[in-house]
């Protein structure tokens, strides 16, 4: 089994259901993480008309960024997982919204990090089709 998939996602970010919008880290290579998520009307808020809402899609992307930095902190730097805040979203574009039960595969690439702020580019795919992109900055809460 893929070693990343066996990491419980709650070890990678502090968000809990019904406000958790990621299921599994599938891969981490060279600063880029790939995350899988299937929206479920019984488990997730921010669903509308049988689909993940646009705002839910934003939160999914932000949480993918959190999973990436959570993995790096926990498994590369051996630090605890920290609470993070979204700092900024830019150029959010999507061609359609994911339906409940569809599986999202989202890649987040680290473009730059300055102190506790990371800038990532996110690409969301369903069945290989690119459906959404955005550039986002997250800040980790300083202790």
């Amino acid at each position: 089994m893929n070693p990343f998939c066996s990491i419980p996602v709650c070890d990678l970010l502090p968000q809990q259901p019904p406000f958790r919008f990621v299921d599994v880290l599938e891969d981490y290579t060279d600063g880029a993480a790939r995350i899988r998520f299937t929206p479920d009307e019984g488990k997730n808020l921010l669903m509308e008309d049988g689909c993940l809402s646009a705002v839910g899609l934003m939160e999914h992307m932000a949480q993918c960024s959190a999973v990436r930095s959570g993995y790096v902190n926990r498994f590369v730097l051996n630090l605890p997982v920290k609470i993070g805040y979204i700092g900024q979203f830019r150029k959010l574009r999507f061609t359609r919204l994911p339906k409940a039960g569809e599986t999202l595969e989202t890649t987040v690439f680290l473009r730059e990090q300055v102190n506790n702020i990371s800038l990532v580019d996110a690409e969301v795919r369903i069945g290989g089709e690119l459906i959404a992109t955005a550039s986002l900055k997250s800040a980790l809460k300083e202790d």
Binding site: Q88, E112, V114, N115, K137, A139
Partner: peptide, 13 residues
């Protein structure tokens, strides 16, 4: 501010 500083670092690079 601290968010734009990240964009500045990207620009300079």
């Amino acid at each position: 501010d601290s968010l734009e500083v990240v964009d500045v670092v990207v620009l300079v690079e």
